[in-house]
Amino acid sequence: MTYKVEQVEDLKAIDISHLVKESETEGYRFLTRLVNDYEDGTNRFNKPGEALLAVQNDEGEVVAIGGVNQSPFSEDTQVARLQRFYVLDDARRQGVGSLLLKEIVDHSRDAFKEVTVRTESSKADAFYRANGFELDDTASETTHLMKL
């Protein structure tokens, strides 16, 4: 199976309903917030440096999504926040998450000096550390960061 990563210009133009449903079943509501915030204009990943990216499989199905925003927790516009990062269960452990994260980090290098994220999951902790993030829980809104 091959995967391609593309920047999402219009969230309404792609189908992520299966990701939203699965994430809610797992107890996560951040993809529901992604859809709601996009629809009401709260967050469209359109400030300088920001982007929303999706991974599609050979059939064109979206199997992962994630984005980067200017961090709402920093006054420094060169601090990014990884947001709404989710990989469909069937696509996990196949390099999809790492591929998506690499593309987000590469996109971020021109606009940001660091990327932060917060997770409470031990699996996500292991994933972020395996992909170059450092554990940093000195601030309540951040658990991991990567200097760019």
Score class of each variant (00 low, 15 high):
Ser98Lys: 11
Ser98Asp: 06
Val117Thr: 07
Arg109Leu: 11
Lys123Leu: 12
Ser121Ala: 08
Val96Asp: 01
Ala111Asn: 14
Thr119Asn: 04
Leu100Ser: 07
Val117His: 03
Thr119Leu: 07
Lys123Trp: 12
Asp106Trp: 09
Leu100Gln: 00
Gln94Arg: 10
Lys102Trp: 02
Gly95Tyr: 00
Lys113Gln: 12
Asp110Phe: 14
Asp110His: 14
Ser98Arg: 02
Gly97Ile: 06
Leu101Phe: 06
Ala111Lys: 07
Asp106Lys: 11
Lys123Ala: 15
Asp125Trp: 06
Leu100Lys: 03
Ser122Val: 09
Glu120Asn: 13
Glu120Ser: 12
Ser108His: 05
Ser122Lys: 08
His107Thr: 05
His107Ala: 06
Leu101Gln: 01
Glu103Ala: 14
Ser108Tyr: 02
Ser121Phe: 03
Val96Cys: 00
Thr119Phe: 03
Gln94Glu: 08
Gln94Leu: 13
Lys113Ile: 13
Ser122Gly: 04
Glu114Cys: 11
Phe127Asn: 05
Asp125Ile: 08
Ser121Arg: 07
Glu103Val: 02
Val105Gln: 12
Phe127Leu: 00
Glu114Phe: 02
Lys123Ile: 14
Gly97Trp: 01
Arg109Cys: 09
Ile104Asn: 08
Gly97Tyr: 01
Ala111Asp: 13
Val115Ser: 02
Lys113Trp: 07
Gly95Asp: 04
Arg109Tyr: 00
Glu103Ile: 10
Val117Phe: 04
Thr119Gln: 01
Lys102Arg: 13
Thr116Arg: 14
Leu101Met: 02
Val105Asn: 12
Ala124Lys: 01
Thr119Val: 03
Ser122Gln: 12
Val105Pro: 07
Ile104Asp: 11
Leu100His: 06
Leu99Phe: 06
Lys123Ser: 15
Gln94Ala: 07
Lys102Ile: 04
Lys113Gly: 08
Asp110Ser: 15
Phe127Asp: 01
Gly95Glu: 00
Asp125Ala: 13
Val105Ala: 14
Thr119Met: 05
Thr116Ala: 01
Ala111Gln: 12
Val117Trp: 06
Glu103Gly: 06
Val115Thr: 14
Glu114Ala: 02
Ser121Glu: 08
Asp125Cys: 10
Thr119Gly: 02
Val117Met: 06
Arg118Met: 15
Thr116Gly: 11
Leu101Cys: 05
Glu103Arg: 14
Glu103Met: 10
Ser108Cys: 05
Leu99Ile: 00
Val105Arg: 12
Glu103Asn: 15
Val96Ile: 04
Ala126Cys: 06
Asp125His: 15
Ile104Glu: 12
Glu114Gln: 11
Gln94Met: 09
Asp106Glu: 15
Glu120Val: 12
Leu100Ala: 04
Leu100Ile: 02
Ile104His: 08
Ala126Gly: 08
Ala124Gln: 07
Gly97Glu: 02
Phe112Glu: 09
Phe112Cys: 05
Lys102Phe: 08
